[in-house]
Design a protein around this nucleic acid. Structure first.
Length: 273
DNA sequence: ATATGGCCCTGGTTGC
DNA sequence: TGCAACCAGGGCCATA
């Protein structure tokens, strides 16, 4: 599932291929989802606009667009679970579950493919120069003290807190489990009862694995691929995620799996307290 | 306000 | 071997 490192990889890859190009044509599927902005509004607004820049904001991919008369707009893409953004030759037939195909001035097409339709496409107007903002704090740049303050007084588990996008945005199931393992914290602990020192350690562990994962092009576990259709390699670095029953790489005891916040949660009973 | 659980979706895996 | 039931989970919404 695409989380911060995967979304960052896709955004950078797409930026390198489509920056500066004009959107000449728009094709959209007939489904209600994944369109957050109506299909008709999107199909009418996009043609003629120029892509100035593509970047990540939380788990969202933001396209800065210019060329409108009534002020700048952004095209915001959320990959959900199975969403893919691909730049491909316009001649290639549309893959199954394609929901958007933007014809570009280069002759190529930017395509959004999403089997499960948990992804979202939206058109956002830029108000007073402020672009789209994600719901929470940015994990890669939040200061340790601000990170610690996020969890103060909270009774939910630290795992659920890490997944809550209004606190930190960008962390999903893989990096929540992996950062908790590296910080030695059991996922079931109440977020507000963890010591400052342990939260600072979690802050460091989370930033470290997110940076490492970005370097490796993300984790390819379900059908995640980057803008070229190429898989990432961070899954080779997973120490607990999807390793249920396998020996802990530190102590050798079997990795446990429980369900927390409705998500599969993997951890070592011995190494995480 | 905060926390929890159900729901949406399809494809891969599991089990008979 | 074939088929059906089951499971995965990000974000949103109703509920407690």
């Amino acid at each position: 599932m695409p989380e911060l490192p995967e979304v960052e990889t896709v955004a950078n890859g797409v930026d390198a291929r489509v920056r500066g190009q004009r959107i000449d044509s728009v094709w959209l599927s007939r489904y209600k989802e994944p369109f957050k902005t109506s299909r008709s509004e999107m199909a009418e607004a996009l043609p003629g606009l120029r892509i100035e820049r593509v970047y990540r904001e939380g788990k969202h991919i933001v396209f800065d667009l210019s060329g409108t008369e009534g002020g700048a707009v952004q095209w915001v893409v959320h990959l959900g679970m199975t969403g893919r953004l691909l730049v491909s030759a316009a001649e290639l037939p549309l893959a199954k579950h394609t929901h958007a195909a933007l014809g570009l001035s280069s002759g190529q097409e930017l395509r959004f493919v999403d089997a499960r339709r948990f992804g979202r496409l939206a058109l956002v107007r830029v108000e007073n120069g402020a672009g789209f903002r994600g719901p929470g704090h940015e994990p890669l740049s939040i200061a340790p003290e601000d990170f610690v303050a996020l969890f103060r007084g909270r009774t939910l588990t630290i795992k659920a807190a890490l997944l809550n996008q209004t606190l930190l945005h960008g962390v999903g199931n893989i990096y929540a489990d992996e950062s908790l393992f590296r910080a030695g914290i059991r996922p079931t602990r109440a977020a507000g009862r963890l010591s400052r020192a342990r939260l600072v350690r979690l802050h460091g562990a989370l930033q470290e694995i997110l940076r490492k994962a970005i370097e490796l092009g993300g984790s390819s576990v379900s059908d995640y691929v980057d803008a070229d259709g190429v898989a990432g390699f961070f899954q080779l670095e997973h120490r607990v995620y999807m390793r249920t029953g396998e020996p802990c790489l530190v102590c050798g005891r079997p990795i446990h799996r429980i369900v927390l916040a409705g998500r599969g949660t993997h951890f070592c009973l011995h190494c995480q307290r």
